[in-house]
Design a protein around this nucleic acid. Structure first.
Lengths: 235, 235
DNA sequence: ACAAAGTTAATTGTTGACAATTGACAGTTT
DNA sequence: AAACTGTCAATTGTCAACAATTAACTTTGT
C-alpha cells in the first residue's frame, strides 16, 4: 500500500470540470445564494482561468439545472418557485421509492452493514443537534439509492437532489428536520433490511406523504414569488 | 397567420444550441450509429462553425448521456450494454408510472381529447404497418407525461427516452412492436381517462412488467458486449 | 413632467491560434 | 522475438481577441 508515487493518483481532470465541481459545491452549500448573478469575467479572474473554460463549466451546471443562462445578458443561480419545489420533490420521492424497492430486492450483508452505519451516524448527528443532521439525512437517502444498483437512477437522483439543495440552502430554516426524524427513518430502512420490496416502496410512499404535508405548510408561510426557473429546454 | 415576417420567428438560438439539436436528432434517429467516433474538426467543417461552438454542442450532448468524452482522444456516440438498457428501462417505467398517476389526477376535457387523438393516430399507424408505429408509440407515452403537468418529470423522461432511442435505432429489429400493442395501450390510457390515479399507476406497472419480459428475451438473443457507457460522473 | 429615441458601457457569442496530451509506429536493446 | 523507448501526427484543452446583443443611461421633443 506504500508505492513511491501514491500522490497524484492519475486524476488529471480538465480544468472546466474542476471549476464546475467547485462551483457546484458553492451553489448547493449556499455559499453562493440563489438568484445571484454570475459573470464569466469575474469567475475567470477568481479561478485564474480563461473565459472559455469558465463558460464550459457554467454550461455544465446549466444542464444540471443549477444555473440559468440568459442570452447576451448573463448567468444566474436558479431560483426555485414553490411549484418547482413541488415538482422536484414529487420526482425525488418517486425515484427513491423505486430505489427502495430495488435495494430491498438485492441487498446483501455488506449492504445491510453500510445502511446501518449511515443510520447510526444519523442517530449521533441527531443527538448533537447541529447542522450535520441534514448531511446525515442526505447521506442516508443517498445510500439507499446506491444500494439500488442502478447507476442511472443514482445519477438522476443526484441531479434532482442538488437542485433541491439549492432551495434548502436558501431557506435557512430547515424543512422537516425535527423530532421523530430518526425513528421515521428507521421505518424506512427496516423493510429494506428485511428484503421486502413491496413494503419498502410503500414505506417511502408513506414517508413522503407525511413530508409533503409539512412542506406544503412551510411553503405556504414562505410565499416566495415564482421567479424564473429553468429545466433546460431542447428545441 | 400571414405576417410580413413569419420566417425567423423570433427564435434566435445560439449556434451551439442549433448544432446540438441537429446532432441529437441524427443520433436518436440512428443516422449516426452508436459507437461512431466524432471529431470536432470534421463536425466543424460539416456545420460551417468553429471548433469551440461544436465543442459546446458536444458537451451538451455528453450531459444528456448521448455522447461520451475521452480526454485528448475524442468523442463517441454512447453504446449501451444490456445492463444499461435495463437501467434506463426501469427508470423510464417508474417515471411513466408516476406520470400516469399524476395525469389521471388532474386530467380535464382538453387533456382527454388530446390523449384520444394520439391514441387514434396510433391505431392508424398500426394499420399501415410501417415504421411510423414507433413514432406514434413514443408520442402516446410522451403525451401522458405532458399531461402529468410536471415539467421536470417530462425533462428527465426525455433525457432517458433519448438514450433508449439510441439503442432502439441501433437494433434494427423493433422491440415490442407487434400484435396487440394497440389494445394494450388502451388499457394504459383508460384509467387516466377515468381519472383513477391508483389504477393508472398499476396499469403502467403491469404494462412494463410484460414489456420487460419480452425485452429480456430480446436482449438474451442480441448478447452485446458491455461496451463503455457513461452516466456523467461529477467528482 | 413625460415618453420616445439615440448612445454607450457591459456582457455574452464566436472564432482562430497555440499548448498539452494521446496513441500508433518505428527503432533500439536485450 | 519480445519488450521497451523515442518520435510524430492527430486530436483535444486552453486562451485571448473580436463581433453581436442587451440593458441602462442620456438626450431630445412635446
Amino acid at each position: 500500500m506504500s508505492g513511491i508515487a501514491d500522490l497524484e493518483p492519475a486524476t488529471k481532470q480538465s480544468l472546466d470540470r474542476v471549476a464546475a465541481n467547485r462551483l457546484r459545491d458553492a451553489l448547493v452549500s449556499g455559499r453562493i445564494a440563489a438568484g445571484a448573478r454570475l459573470t464569466e469575467i469575474s469567475l475567470a479572474e477568481q479561478f485564474g482561468l480563461s473565459r472559455g473554460t469558465i463558460r464550459a463549466a457554467l454550461q455544465r451546471l446549466v444542464s444540471e439545472g443549477l444555473i440559468v443562462q440568459r442570452p447576451y445578458t448573463g448567468w444566474e443561480v436558479t431560483t426555485l418557485s414553490p411549484h418547482d419545489v413541488w415538482e422536484l420533490g414529487t420526482l425525488r420521492a418517486s425515484l427513491e421509492g423505486l430505489a427502495g424497492r430495488l435495494a430491498a430486492e438485492r441487498i446483501d450483508d455488506a449492504g445491510r452493514t453500510a445502511l446501518m452505519n449511515v443510520f447510526r451516524a444519523m442517530e449521533d448527528a441527531a443527538r448533537d443537534e447541529n447542522q450535520s443532521l441534514l448531511a446525515a439525512d442526505l447521506a442516508l437517502h443517498r445510500m439507499i439509492v446506491s444500494l439500488s444498483g442502478n447507476e442511472r437512477l443514482a445519477h438522476h437522483y443526484d441531479l434532482i437532489t442538488n437542485q433541491l439543495r439549492l432551495y434548502i440552502a436558501s431557506s435557512n430554516r430547515l424543512v422537516g428536520i425535527e423530532g421523530g426524524i430518526v425513528a421515521r427513518h428507521y421505518e424506512l430502512i427496516e423493510p429494506i433490511l428485511k428484503g421486502d420490496g413491496d413494503a419498502a416502496e410503500q414505506a417511502f410512499r408513506d414517508f413522503f406523504h407525511r413530508s409533503n404535508s409539512e412542506l406544503a405548510e412551510f411553503l405556504a408561510v414562505g410565499e416566495r414569488e415564482p421567479v424564473e426557473a429553468a429545466p433546460t429546454s431542447k428545441n
